[in-house]
């Protein structure tokens, strides 16, 4: 189910689900961690062989994939750790300075 958490900081006693239960799954996608980055991975599509190595090693589930094809990088959640660039066998991802 979807769970509307707008204005949660102002919720009062009794507004929260009993026991602090989170009545949904995976809503952390609504929380953006992209702002943590100091470096940003840049995907060089023409070099990419779609081997999925970056995908299997991404700690933030931030390699966008569909039908076994890489589509790009989810900058809303990518923290810029650089593992994808370090592990890519085709040098298809490069780290560059994050824009201010």
């Amino acid at each position: 189910m979807s769970w509307d958490i707008k204005n949660l900081k102002n919720w009062k006693v009794g507004d929260h689900p009993p026991g602090a239960l989170i009545p949904t799954g995976g809503n952390a996608v609504e929380y953006k961690t992209g702002g943590w980055r100091s470096e940003k991975p840049r995907w060089i599509e023409e070099k990419c062989t779609h081997c999925m190595i970056c995908w299997v090693f991404c700690p933030d589930t931030s390699i966008e994939v569909k039908e076994s094809k890489m589509l790009g990088i989810d900058y809303d959640h990518c923290k810029g750790c650089g593992i994808c660039a370090a592990e890519c066998p085709s040098d298809a991802i490069e780290m560059e300075e994050e824009e201010k």
Binding site: G26, W36, D60, D74, D76, K79, G80
Partner: peptide
């Protein structure tokens, strides 16, 4: 999902 707060 992404959006967890583990370190980079």
């Amino acid at each position: 999902t992404g959006g967890h707060r583990l370190c980079a």
